[in-house]
């Protein structure tokens, strides 16, 4: 099964870095969608089949916490595996996010950290042997 991914970050460079790290991870990759804020990310979720969301926290227009809250308010989006990729350093905010069911990766991250998190989250069957 190919995994359709949505990357939400206001930095084009960071979106490219995340995409490259996903490609290196061996994930069976389908479509890759990108958005530069939470609102644009939600619009993509409305129009496309997405299996995995990677989202930053600090973004203009709609931040990552707001996007995740909007996703969790929707039954059809609630179960989409979600990884926050952020510089966020507040232990309380990270714990709040993790309690809501999302994973957290701290920037700067290594490709290995991303791979291990995705394997843990999605299972090894969606990765190339």
């Amino acid at each position: 099964m190919a995994v359709n991914v949505l990357i939400v970050d206001d930095s084009g460079v960071m979106r490219a870095m995340i995409r490259k790290a996903i490609e290196l991870s061996g994930l069976s990759l389908g479509e890759v969608h990108q958005a530069e804020n939470g609102r644009a990310g939600l619009e993509i979720l409305e129009s496309s089949w997405i299996d995995l969301v990677l989202v930053d926290i600090n973004m203009p227009v709609m931040n990552g916490e707001e996007m995740i809250a909007a996703m969790h308010a929707r039954e059809d989006f609630r179960s989409i595996p979600t990884v926050v990729v952020s510089t966020e350093g507040s232990r309380s905010r990270i714990e709040r996010l993790e309690t809501s069911g999302v994973r957290f990766i701290h920037k700067p991250f290594s490709p290995e950290k991303l791979r291990d998190t995705l394997r843990d989250l999605l299972g090894s069957e969606v990765f190339h042997a």
Binding site: S11, V13, M14, N58, S86, T87, E88, G89, K107, P108
Partner: peptide
């Protein structure tokens, strides 16, 4: 910009 963002966040 991203470098500055990550430095600040950390």
């Amino acid at each position: 910009r991203e470098l500055a963002n990550v430095i600040c966040g950390n």
